[in-house]
Structures are given as C-alpha cells and as structure tokens.
Design a binder for these strands. Sequence first.
DNA 1: ATCCTCAAAGCAAACGATTGCTTCATCAGC
DNA 2: GCTGATGAAGCAATCGTTTGCTTTGAGGAT
Lengths: 350, 350
Amino acid sequence: MRCAAAQRVSRGCALTVTIREVADAAGVSTATVSRALSGVQTVDPELVARVRESAESLGYRANRVARALRRQSTQTVGLVIPDITNPFFPAVVQAIERELRHDGLSLLLCDAGNDVDVEAELVRNLFDHQIDGLLISACDRIASRPAVQLAASRVPVLQIDQQTVAEVPYVGVDQADAMGQIIGHLRDQGCQSFAYIGPRPEIPTARERFDAFADRVKPVDPAAANRTYLGDSSIAWGHEAANRILADGPPPDAIVCANDQAALGALQALREHGVKVPGDVALTGFDDTVLATACEPQLTSVSQPLEELGARAVRELSAAIGQELRQPRSVLLEASLVIRGSSRRLPPTG
Amino acid sequence: MRCAAAQRVSRGCALTVTIREVADAAGVSTATVSRALSGVQTVDPELVARVRESAESLGYRANRVARALRRQSTQTVGLVIPDITNPFFPAVVQAIERELRHDGLSLLLCDAGNDVDVEAELVRNLFDHQIDGLLISACDRIASRPAVQLAASRVPVLQIDQQTVAEVPYVGVDQADAMGQIIGHLRDQGCQSFAYIGPRPEIPTARERFDAFADRVKPVDPAAANRTYLGDSSIAWGHEAANRILADGPPPDAIVCANDQAALGALQALREHGVKVPGDVALTGFDDTVLATACEPQLTSVSQPLEELGARAVRELSAAIGQELRQPRSVLLEASLVIRGSSRRLPPTG
DNA sequence: ATCCTCAAAGCAAACGATTGCTTCATCAGC
DNA sequence: GCTGATGAAGCAATCGTTTGCTTTGAGGAT
C-alpha cells in the first residue's frame, strides 16, 4: 500500500501533510477526517480517536487557505492605520492583535503613511484577501470617507478612534470630555486665560479636541480664540507655537496642548525664554505618552485607555463576524486626567 | 442570455465578481481571462483588450485565496515581534510593511508579548496560513531557537535584529561597534571610570551590548566589572540602578546605559541626588528614541537605522521568495553616535 | 421474513483561480 | 492537395478543504 504520504516522502517533499494522508492513515475518507476533527457531526467516537491519533502522529494541520476558499471565510481581519510610529497606536495594535488571536482571528496590518490614496488602495487590497472584517483608523476626516463606506458595504467595519462616517460604528475615546477635564482642572488651579497648540483639525479627534477647547474656554476667556496655534503634531511645532505666543503679547495663564509632543516643545521654548512652568504658565499635554514623564516638570496629560480601545474594538467586530446579522456597536470610552507638575499651581486641596 | 453575473445580481448577491463572470462577459474561457490578465503572450491582443474591458467594467479583482491555493503561494509573509510597544519596533514595522507592499506582498503581524510559548504557537499558526516567508525578532536568545529552526526548514526566514540561530540569516545592527563608539566618545571626553545599566542579557542584542561594554572598558577600568547593573528595560530600573550606583560608592565618570529608558531613569535619580550631568557624571543612552531629546540635558545616544533595517530585511526575504534557490543573506548595518548634552564635558575640538 | 428508520460514513461537488494538455485553425512547404 | 508546423484558445484537472447528498448496514417494528 503506497498512500499519498508515502509517495510524497519517497519523493522527498513531505513538507505538508494533507487531510488525504490523514484519511489514508486512519483508513477513512477525508470527509470523516474533516468531521471528526471539527467535532460538529455525528462521528463514531472510536473513529474520532483513530483520526485524532493519525492526525497527531502525522503532524497534520489544516490548510487555512483551502479552508477559507471552501468556507468563504478567511478568519482574517484587516487593520488600516495612518502611521504606526504615532505613539498612540502601538499599544492599540498590540491589544487588537492579542484579542483577535484569542478569537481565532489573524491580523493583516497596513500602514497608510497618512496618505489617503494609499489608504484606499490598502482597503481594496484587503478585500482581495477576502478579509472577514476591517478595523480602520482613517487618515482624513473627509477624504477617507469613500474607502470606509465601500468597505462597510462588504464586511463588518469598525472605525477606531477616528469617526469619519457617521453611519459606520466606531470605538473611540470621548475627546470633548477629556478636554473638559483639562480645562476644569486648570480653572481649579486659578487659570483665567488660555492658549491652544495643536495640529490642524484634519482628523476627527483633532477637531473634537479643538472644538471642545473653544467651547469650554469661551465663557471664561473670549480672547482665547485669538490664541490658537494650529500646525502639526511635532515637538518642533510646539516649540515654534510657544515662541509665537510669547512674541504675540503677555503669556496666558495656561497653554493647553492637543498632544504631548506639542507640550514638550512648548516647555522647551518656555524654558529658553526663562518662563517658569507652572509658576508663570501652566502647561498641559494630551495622550499621556512616555514623553509626559520624561521631562521636568512632568506633564499633566490625559490618559486614553488604549488597550481597552483595541480590545473593545475587537470584541465588537468579532461578534459581528460571528453572527451574520449583527452590526458592530459603537463604543465611547472615557479618558482620565493625570495631574502632574506642569499644571500644579496650588497645593492639592484636602 | 443569463450569464452567471446576471444571475447573481438578480439574486441580490453580486458582492464578488469571479473570473467566470468576466469570461462570460468577454465571451471567452476562464483560462483565457486568466492568461490575458496575467500578461501571458499567447493571447490575441484584441482579446486581451476585450477581457481587460470586461474585467474593468465588472470591477473584477482576482480572489487571492483561490489563487494562493492553486499557485501554492500566498504572497504573504509573517512578522513575529516580541513587543510592538517597545519603541524600537514601530519604525521597523512601518518600513517592513511599506516595502512588502511595494513587492506585492502582504503582512500578517504577530506580537508575542515576550512569551516564548506564544511565539512558538504564532509561528505554527502562520504556517497554517501558508506564509511564503517569515521575519522574526525572537523573544529569547535560547528558548526561541526551536521555533526559528522549524520555520527555517519550511520557508525563507530572516531574523530581524536578534540572531538566535547562527545558521539562519539575519539583518541587524552592529551593536558592538555602536557600543565601541560610545566608549570611544566618553574616553575622548576624559572619562576614566564607568558603570553600566541595562537589561539582563536574555536577548542577543542586550548581550552584545553588555559584552561589548565589558570588552572595551576592561583595559581602561577593570573595576567597571563591579559596576554593572542588570535588570529590565524600564525607566524605573534606570532610576533604581542609579540610586544603587550612588549608594555603592563614589560615582564613576560615566554611566553607560543600554537603552534610553534606563538613561532617563538614571538622569532623574542623579538629579534628585544633586549630581550634575554631565559635569559630575556623563550619561549615555542607546537607541535614540524620542526620549533622548525630551529631557534636559538631552541624551547622547546611538541611532539605529530602523527604516533601513526593515527595508533591507524585506529586500533579502523578498528576493529569496522570488527565486526558489536563493537563501536570504545576512546584513549587518552600522549605527551612528548622536552626541548631545548628557555626555559633553569638553568643548568640541576643531 | 420484510420493510422502514436512522445513524454513520463515503462520494463527489463545490470554492475560484491557474495551467498542462488537447483541439482547432491557419498557413507554409512540398 | 496533403502534411506538418505553429500558435491561439478551450477543456478539464488541480490546489486542500468542507459539506450536500447518497449509500450502507444495523436494528426494530410489523
């Protein structure tokens, strides 16, 4: 008896063992092997044991490509993010990958490099891979919409952090609330005038932060509208913007930054001009990156629940993939203010 | 004439268009469509045009799962890294993904969470996906070997940054040379006694850095062997280790750290004890992360060519995947010393 | 003893592409 | 006009699973 496996071995190419070889070894059909191993159907327990044993001894592992073709489901999801070197993402990606694996799903990672055209191509490419679901953090508030909409018409899609299409569910962090916590804290510290440094609001979260700042500050300090400095997300822009603030007139009581990079750049510029933080100007960051604790004084910032963000996203998407009719649900998480030296002008009360 | 496409549409499930439908639309066989689109020469140019047009108008995109099954090649590579939140990796991952895409390959990302058992399972799982190649940065100098060896017996494998198996090619950065640059620089600055803070050498690069430090320093300062503080890769450990250094006796001229986190922690501890950097003690980091420029004084560090690392890795792997017989080649890149305030005790010469 | 039921296992058809082999037509050479 | 060469297009097998349908056989009811 020369079974397929034996033939392969004799030809020196036993690299992969197929279900056919397990079937031969166990003396049953491939159908029975499939059913025995997947445990769904009624298979004689004795046969199940024999099949298991054969599979084990041959080191059989099902070919997921073949299974995907037949089942019309790859158990794979795509993740498209704008820029993984943005310190926001690694922890989210890690949580996503871990949770997906926990659910038996695999991750195709794509980095759009902040380019909307690349992003659209990535989405198309992921569909060629027959992904079962898509997680996407869009590059652009407007220009990314067609890609997200196209995707949502074909598989369950969950927008991560950035909601560009209102109809498509998303998992994010309440930016307005977070900014509210910052302003509230600064007012508690006695600050009455404010400036804002951040990126141009090309992406939804940047816009939410900026809008929330404007909203909360207007009643107290209408002049703050003249002290908003919009550039990019770099340390350099924080530095530059702080220089402009100092050049434009007497500094405000507080400078609110839309990210830690900007706050750090601003801190360096203030120090160069001999402006004391928090004595002369209170300063706050956003995102609570590693930068926040690297400088002196350390930065008051807002910590976003990154792991939870990733985990919740996967939970929602995974549920939608499992049950045909279930649409993923949107989830809004809360950030938490982390108060450090850069904004502490008063001794803690109580 | 009711072609397959029309039937699907009428049943309301025209989600994907297959090669069959393109063939029907163009009035040819699927074989001809396949050949026309893949650019085989033996197809009448007129037919090629007709097929292209049909494919275009139907929005046909080849199903990569089906293609992979038939061609026995998924055009997909796996990447296994120990921990993407380690600031070393995001830039490398980004470069890898970009270069893979450029070569028409896709990336299955796996994060082992620094767990060797998880890592081994991830490799097995990637094989179930029929990956065409594997990039791996191993968790452990010893315990990761079986997984790497198993992988290398089946597909082209390239070790990234960490070489755990000597026979398997790798792309990395010359750690010993980098450490040599640091010691050379510190000696130029007049430092004669040294201490070392770093992680326990469980992974190859950590060991290389430590060994290189010991080698280069021994001729100048044999006592340095008593001032090596091995813990983990955290800011906290840098802080703790620096405290111990100060407690253990008069501080050395220089503290060499195996990463920026340790250097930052040490800097904070030294500041707390009123020890001046670089006046009393010179301090150096490693990896040139964002932390290096976040503190005051900024950290002298070693910048590794992360993008090049990723790009070279892909170039080698991709070539090996393309040509059956070609084994990837090992590549050793050079890091560059970035001198900043933390080690500058003398005015620059010249 | 015959028929019916029902469970268990196998046969074979998918899934959607690629590709070896065959067929068919055209054309040149004799 | 016949044969052979050449080239283009199609047929059908194939990749490795899964699964609908059929077959088989055992056991119970009549």
